[in-house]
């Protein structure tokens, strides 16, 4: 049910997890991730379940963003989003769709997005951009140092402003684009998380539930995909982790 975990170069270890809702197949998963070690860009996107063809919109956003450069200003990102939205919408410009698909398509597709570009050098740095409630989390010495664009577990649950495929008719999304940057030290860890796993992780940190967060950290470090899946299933069953798709990209420096 999970994609394979990857181990990268000695400088940076990249791991990723994709887990569908309980009882669903990976093909039904509406979360997506993408990693490109050439551009050093990594992204997670979370398609809105109730919107049209959200899975491929999320996958498009993540894949296209990591395979390009720039797009780390609000203006550039918005312009890029319009173009990608146009291409996505045009892919469904068919007349043989049933009436309900035509109706749904007109509202467009929506996804949360978070992407980070890493600059490795004498002074390693990161720049990240987000729209929606997929999260960037940077940890140092076991402590969470940076969380954005949602800053605490209480920030989840309301209807977030997401990346729309019809950007022109959703202009309010422009002001919801969040940008942040910072430095990286050896031993730091960056997580890109879709909303459910982000809410769970931040809640565990806020409650200082070291047992849970340590177990999760250890499993990520081990890279045992079956063990991570089992662990998250156990967290789902009592409702601690919302039964939603899960996408994780983990960068270890």
């Amino acid at each position: 049910m999970m994609s394979p975990l990857k181990t990268a170069s000695p400088d940076l270890i990249v791991r990723h997890v994709l887990l569908p809702k309980a009882g669903h197949t990976l093909a039904e998963c509406e979360d997506a991730f993408a990693c490109n070690r050439t551009t050093m860009r990594f992204a997670v996107a979370d398609g809105a379940t109730e919107s049209f063809d959200s899975a491929s919109w999320a996958q498009r956003l993540a894949t296209k963003w990591v395979n390009t450069s720039g797009l780390l200003t609000t203006e550039e990102f918005w312009s890029w989003l319009k173009n990608e939205g146009q291409a996505h919408n045009d892919s469904w410009n068919r007349q043989d769709l049933p009436w309900y698909s035509m109706e749904k398509r007109q509202a467009g597709s929506f996804a949360a997005f978070v992407g980070v570009e890493i600059q490795i050098g004498r002074e390693a740095k990161w720049k990240a951009i987000a729209l929606g409630d997929s999260c960037f989390v940077q940890s140092r010495n076991g402590n969470v140092e940076v969380v954005f664009p949602v800053s605490s577990s209480a920030g989840f649950g309301s209807a977030p402003i997401l990346a729309p495929s019809f950007a022109d008719v959703n202009p309010h999304a422009l002001s919801a684009i969040a940008l942040q940057s910072g430095d990286i030290l050896a031993g730091d860890r960056i997580l890109l998380l879709s909303d459910a796993i982000a809410a769970w992780y931040l809640s565990s940190c806020e409650k200082q539930d070291h047992k849970t967060t340590s177990a999760f950290d250890d499993l990520l470090n081990d890279g045992d995909e079956a063990a991570i899946a089992n662990f998250l299933e156990l967290e789902r069953s009592p409702g601690r982790l919302k039964d939603d798709d899960v996408a994780i990209v983990c960068l270890e420096f």
């Binding site: 109730e50 049209f52 063809d53 769709l97 049933p98 309900y100 698909s101 109706e103 749904k104």
Partner: peptide, 14 residues
């Protein structure tokens, strides 16, 4: 009914 159908629509499937 239109609303309920649209809520359940996943691309080309209800």
């Amino acid at each position: 009914l239109h609303d309920l159908v649209i809520r359940c629509t996943k691309t080309e499937e209800v």
